[in-house]
Simulated scan of single mutants.
Amino acid sequence: MERSRIAVAGASGLIGSALVRSLTADGHQVVRLVRRAARGEDEVRWDPEEQYIDAAGLLGCHAVVNLAGAGIGDHRWTDTYKKTLRDSRVLGTAALAEAVASLPEPPRVFVSGSAIGYYGETGDRAVDETAPPGDGFLPSLCVEWEGAADAAQEAGVRTVFVRTGLVVAREGGAWGRLFPLFKAGLGGRMGDGHQYWSFISLHDEVAAIRHLIDREDLSGPFNLTAPHPLTNREITAAMGRLLHRPTLFSAPAPALRLALGEMAGDVLGSARVLPGRLLESGFSFAFPEIDQALRAALRS
């Protein structure tokens, strides 16, 4: 892709900051959406919960990438925090989509975040983008989250939904918490360990987003997961093997439910999600296997 102006919401998060580094390194001009007064041409003021954005700051952008949202695992899922999770995603996406649609010359593409939580519990059944949404809080949130981008689609802007899996990285997310535990020899399976975890390396996550920005023939939902999801038991074994640590500890399902409440379903649930459309589009994973993804995270 030629050097372009690209706006990123959620630029300070795990994926957003890595995407910004990648784009900047290749000479693209990145505009960050910030929740304070803009301090230069590379910032745009917005407030997702208030559905406010200085749309003029998006003028001239080739792409707008929306990765903003409160952390799924940051707090216990009380009714109050579930509202925070919803508002930070749905209201923010709607504000961005409407801003994009209002521009006299809209961007060529709107990439909007989503998650494999869309599919809910899949057990041993592998699913791709053709599968319907599951049941429960996360699937309903993802459906509403993606639906909030309607204004951009109706304005004719190519819209892509990135349904992201568990990102393997030291800097944050699930593995940001797992690595220190396993390094201390305190790692182990969760529940019975038979639940599938659909992972993706941070490198491949960023590369896939850039692939979807560049490919003007691609739109709709894409699963951002490695081609070979594994069970929690298999991933636990890989972590122990790579870090040369025992994996004797385990977190029983009842204890997790007591500690995490409703969020425990996300840890104990099984999501065997395949990147069908991403592979069909010709995308090539740099780190398709868990050992490769773990080593890449430890090198970063």
Rank of each mutant, 00 (worst) to 15 (best):
A7R: 13
A7W: 11
G10R: 12
I15L: 08
R21H: 13
T24Q: 14
D26I: 01
H28P: 01
H28L: 00
L33K: 11
A37H: 12
V44N: 12
I53S: 04
A55R: 15
N66H: 15
A70D: 14
I72C: 02
G73D: 13
H75K: 15
H75E: 14
R76H: 13
W77V: 01
T80E: 15
K83A: 15
A97C: 01
V109R: 03
F110Y: 14
V111L: 01
S112F: 04
G113P: 06
A115V: 07
T122D: 03
A131L: 01
A131C: 02
P133R: 13
D135K: 15
F137A: 01
S140P: 00
C142S: 05
E144I: 12
E144F: 06
W145Y: 09
E146K: 10
E146T: 04
A148Y: 06
A149R: 03
Q153I: 09
T159I: 04
T164E: 05
G172P: 03
G172S: 00
A184Y: 05
G185T: 01
D204L: 08
I209S: 01
D214Y: 06
R215F: 04
G220T: 12
H228T: 14
E234D: 15
E234H: 13
I235M: 15
R241W: 08
L243S: 04
T247R: 09
F249D: 00
F249R: 14
A251L: 14
A259Q: 13
G261Q: 07
E262G: 05
A264T: 09
D266N: 05
P275A: 08
G282K: 10
G282D: 08
S284I: 11
S284W: 00
P288F: 07
R295Q: 15
L298E: 11
L298W: 08
R299D: 15
